[in-house]
Design a protein around this nucleic acid. Structure first.
Lengths: 305, 305
DNA sequence: CACCAGGCCGAAAATACCTTTCAAAAGGTG
DNA sequence: CACCTTTTGAAAGGTATTTTCGGCCTGGTG
């Protein structure tokens, strides 16, 4: 490297470690000591860090109507060893700027939202659901429900529609650790099953509204037959609570037109179900752990190499 | 290879410009499909983005005790055209991290954790899953999948076990807005269904591992019969991707003994499914909105007063 | 007006860095 | 243990960046 024309360089180390944020300021400060074409480059770089970071020396030279050499010289003036490093700094700067614009979407999902926004909003809403449910979950009730499940002779899970899927999720998990569980989708079948239950058995009902007749009915029957009953519901005051020994409350996000309650309640319900499962697995660890790995092994050959 | 101007990169699924924030998640998601030395590189990169960004290929290869070739290969796996771009992303990521947000690492759930802690940890892990998945979701692919679904003559959803439940969730939603969807639980039935599909139909496969034979098979059949195929998987490099026109990647939390992958993947899958649904509902708003309220009304009398 | 510094600028050579290729090594599998 | 597949790094092959070098413009001077 040759001259630095101004050759000001107060200190021995001319190129200070460049703080990314300082870039715009640096451009302004150093602009006077730059030649015209350098200024063009500096301007482009300061004006659109993200865009510039995506370009190679050649690309940036073209865009600014200059040459590679000029771009490199500019980078040097700005305090970097070369363009390569300036480019890295630009990428960093761009990211920093992007991060600064706090998105914080809490708005409803609208019909004309672009998909990227839908994704972000949904993720946040569901995360909110999880947090709310976790916060509102009564650990004592949960503990009691876990205790009942862990020692149950037989477990019935009642749910309709989306809630039935949650129930099946629970059943699948319980089966994996050797518990006898069932989640009839047919309400009549559910009642038929419920009749069989007695003390020592557990019935779990899942309903967001707490008022779904087809779910209340079997739980009532189970309750009256002496089974331990658990309700997972968003309305702990609802009718279903009358027949539940233990009530686990789910929280649901506000519903909107495009996102009905059924949709948001599912996330909460699943969290509760997971908690139940983990709790039971902990209690029955001696048998649950080997059972889990056994089922894992058994499924291994169902996968391609 | 040319330079990366606007240059749309290679293949059918270019996996889009990766958002910087998604990197840590991506490493976790893709780690299983990596070889040992690649994992070393990925780890170094995820563990110290800033430090890695300062290194050249050769430098990073040395630090990780591998070769340049491996570093480049890793960069490719992570979704970048080459190391140069990964390096830029790392610089961006480092800046973003430095700007404030802590990544928040969750501890494993232990056998003797009290239930209250289990609840908190589970909620946080699932929230993390959601965030990771949202960050890693390729909007372009999602858009394409939504487009296909919205105009589909018939929709098949393939999934086994827990993934089947996710599939049924999707089916239930689609049915509510008047689309013809089906999620056979029986693999043979699935193939039988797949044979019926042709151009204009859509097949969606859901599998965390991307290697579940019983799910790949029907998707392949559907693919070969000309249907538009969508894969929702945690391993976008997996075999299933071969037969998928559009790949939607789910991110999964680290699995632990008590919390197998199947469990954590469900949350991600459901988010993707929700996104698909909302997307489709938006596109078909004219018919979807009344259909939603109709089904709501129809179910009203199934609830206690 | 012709001429001449003196520094700015870009084309092209030189270098550093990144990518690809390919054959050897490692790891399975029958 | 022979065979095949996969993984890996060394080195060749390309790109991008840096440096060199000479032309060119600007503004001053005889």
């Amino acid at each position: 490297m040759k001259e630095t024309f101004g050759a000001v360089t107060s200190g021995p180390q001319p190129s200070a470690p460049p703080a990314p944020g300082a870039l715009a300021a640096k451009v302004r400060t150093l602009a006077p000591s730059m030649t015209r074409s350098m200024q063009r480059v500096a301007e482009a770089v300061a004006g659109d860090p993200a865009g510039s970071a995506a370009l190679t020396v050649t690309g940036l030279a073209e865009r600014t109507g200059t040459s590679e050499a000029t771009v490199v010289r500019t980078a040097r003036i700005l305090g970097y060893p070369g363009y390569r490093d300036l480019r890295l700094a630009l990428a960093a700067l761009a990211a920093e700027q992007a991060a600064g614009r706090a998105p914080a979407v809490t708005a409803d999902i609208a019909v004309d939202d672009p998909l990227a926004e839908v994704v972000a909003k949904l993720a946040q809403e569901e995360a909110q659901c999880l947090a709310d449910t976790a916060a509102g979950l009564d650990t004592t009730q949960l503990e009691a429900a876990v205790g009942a499940l862990a020692t149950a002779r037989r477990i019935d899970v009642y749910g309709i529609g989306a809630s039935n899927l949650v129930g099946q999720d629970l059943v699948q998990k319980l089966l994996r650790i050797g518990l006898l569980a069932h989640a009839p989708a047919d309400p009549h079948l559910a009642v038929t099953n419920a009749v069989q239950l007695r003390a020592g058995d557990v019935a779990v009902a899942i309903t967001h509204s707490g008022r779904t007749t087809d779910v209340i009915e079997p739980l009532r029957v189970a309750f009256e037959h002496g089974a331990t009953t658990v309700a997972i519901t968003g309305r702990p005051q609802g009718e279903i609570a009358q027949y539940a020994d233990h009530v686990l409350t789910t929280s649901s996000a506000r519903e909107s037109e495009l996102r009905p309650a059924a949709m948001s309640s599912r996330t909460s319900q699943l969290l509760v179900v997971d908690c139940l499962f983990i709790g039971v697995a902990q209690r029955t660890y001696e048998t649950a752990a080997p059972a889990l790995s056994d089922t894992y092994e058994a499924l291994a050959h169902r996968h391609a190499p």
